[in-house]
Design a protein around this nucleic acid. Structure first.
Lengths: 141, 141
DNA sequence: ATATACTCTATCAAAATACTAGAATTAAAG
DNA sequence: CTTTAATTCTAGTATTTTGATAGAGTATAT
């Protein structure tokens, strides 16, 4: 399961993607349209900004806009930003590697080989689905 | 990431699988061999028993033993038991379906279709990896 | 100047996670 | 039949994570 934060981020990004290259949207509007608590969404958009997926315009009449092409923001990217590793075990994670404390000898661990396969399966499909995949033809006009 | 509980369960099942059809193993021994806190492991083995993956013999000289073939216990089965849904969103889960509160109209949700694909990818590979996959040739003797 | 909207940090309640404790039950063995 | 050793079961607990909310600060259009 992904966190609500991550799901909200994907929905906000999708909303911004529908408006790609057409100016900016305000937090309050995205929050209302997507049923996301406004103050929570502020945090999320700020994190997305720090991750350079969105840009912002401050002050009265400001808002947020996508700065990356929707086809270049994958579910994997957003998942890693908010929920961390895609791998099921820390010891097989590419981006969030950590030793398993209970593991005496990592090299002879028979689980690693299999969990690398699972990670690769998840990683590939989550990398292939992008924000653009969420935009239906009727919306992309 | 899977929980430690789930990881411990997989390790305990693997240990029992190496002893499949060769009598039973005690909690204390599995705990020592796999570096799992004993009291925590007791809980886990009990849950595995209730799920009819392992059987037990009570009293002095008792212990646990596998009752399913190691090839018929998949990572997906164990994951669902301890960590719940494999799907990333509750609304696309087969075994743990729940409505997304923030979703106004599930039928027109553009995210569902893609998250079903992700679920299927994860589900297939996690179903294919079994406890038997964790037993190296040198151990299976 | 003022209203408006993003920026940033702190706080908080509830839930989940990772355990621990201890009493009850069962069964083998002397 | 009593002791010992093992599973069974429920409850509790500390820590971390999650899902928010609060409010002060900063920037900018009008």
């Amino acid at each position: 399961m992904m966190s609500k934060k991550c799901k909200y981020a994907l929905k906000a990004l999708t909303r911004l993607a529908k408006n790609f290259n057409k100016g900016h949207l305000q937090t309050a509007d995205i929050a209302r349209l997507e049923n996301i608590p406004k103050k929570f969404l502020e945090q999320i958009l700020l994190e997305l900004k720090h991750a350079r997926m969105v840009g912002s315009k401050q002050g009265s009449g400001g808002g947020y806009f996508l700065i990356k092409n929707p086809k270049e923001i994958s579910v994997a990217d957003v998942y890693r930003l908010f929920d961390g590793a895609i791998a099921l075990l820390p010891c097989v994670s590419i981006n969030f590697y950590e030793r398993c404390e209970d593991c005496t000898d990592e090299k002879s661990c028979a689980m690693q080989r299999e969990f690398i396969k699972i990670r690769e399966g998840a990683r590939k499909i989550m990398s292939k689905v992008t924000i653009h995949s969420f935009i239906k033809d009727s919306d992309s006009q």
